[in-house]
């Protein structure tokens, strides 16, 4: 047999989606509830005092940040678990002994995780409409950006899953690095509201560019230019792909 093992991709993809379906209720309810809570707390309580940011109603302003935040965590958790669990239970032996290439493995696992992440993003987008009027300036760009972010963060999660040697390691990066960076990355405010030197310091946080870019697809404006956002998103994608290629070439933490 030669060529592309598309059946393996199909099998892994279906297996992963099946895994998600087992926790369907919590998987879908949690983002809806979380989003609603953010609207109640930020939109209702704080938003009533902070009517507008950069000319955008506060309730609408936080939606792109909320979607991005959930998609970051969903992507990382789903993709890292997807590849960490077989390592943990030992079932990875089958994947390693199957006629499956690195590319096929990544497409299947990352594709499945990204699918779930996009579904969560769409649910939050829909839920937000219950609370605020939400214009979307560039709908195609919005969808494309969501796909780009989902894939990039799933690749990142996949790397994490291969790297992690314990459940704690699996959680430490998303909880101690990505979440603070997201909160400080302008998910709920514009970085223009910060005083110096924090405003300049914030520009070293790559998450700023991603959230800003996504906000641009809604309102046609962001904290930084859209070209910088695309540059950062593209760079993240490239770096993750590079790391994964290296991991498979060397067998890093997969093969002795």
């Amino acid at each position: 047999m030669s060529g592309f093992n598309y059946r393996a991709i199909q099998s892994i993809y279906a297996f992963e989606l099946h895994r998600f379906r087992r926790t369907l209720l919590t998987g879908l309810l949690v983002p809806v509830i979380t989003t609603s809570l953010y609207f109640v707390v930020f939109g209702g309580a704080i938003g009533s005092r902070m009517t507008e940011i950069d000319g955008i109603p506060y309730g609408a302003f936080i939606v792109p940040g909320l979607i991005m935040m959930s998609m970051f965590t969903e992507s990382i958790f789903n993709a890292s678990f997807g590849i960490y669990m077989p390592k943990f239970t030992g079932t990875i032996y089958e994947l390693l002994s199957a006629p499956v290439s690195a590319a096929e493995t990544v497409i299947a696992y990352v594709g499945a995780a990204a699918t779930k992440s996009l579904i969560v993003g769409a649910i939050i987008f829909a839920t937000a409409h219950l609370f605020v009027d939400l214009p979307v300036a560039h709908p195609f760009a919005m969808v494309a950006f969501m796909v780009l972010i989902a894939v990039s963060f799933c690749l990142f999660g996949f790397i994490l899953g291969i790297w992690a040697q314990s459940f704690e390691q699996l959680q430490v990066i998303p909880l101690l690095l990505i979440m603070p960076m997201t909160f400080l990355g302008g998910a709920f405010y514009s970085i223009h509201m910060l005083a110096e030197p924090w405003r300049t310091i914030t520009l070293f946080n790559p998450i700023v560019y991603l959230i800003s870019g996504f906000r641009w697809t809604f309102f046609g404006q962001g904290d930084v230019g859209i070209e910088f956002s695309l540059l950062f998103a593209g760079a993240m994608l490239a770096v993750c792909l590079g790391v994964i290629a290296w991991m498979f070439r060397t067998g890093y933490r997969l093969k002795k």
Partner: peptide
């Protein structure tokens, strides 16, 4: 070692293996 996907059904896990091997 007995490495299995505990939550999968028998027929699913066997069919999965076949697909994984491109059949």
């Amino acid at each position: 070692e007995l490495h299995t996907d505990a939550f999968e059904r028998v027929i699913d896990t066997v069919s999965f293996s076949r697909g994984l091997f491109g059949k």
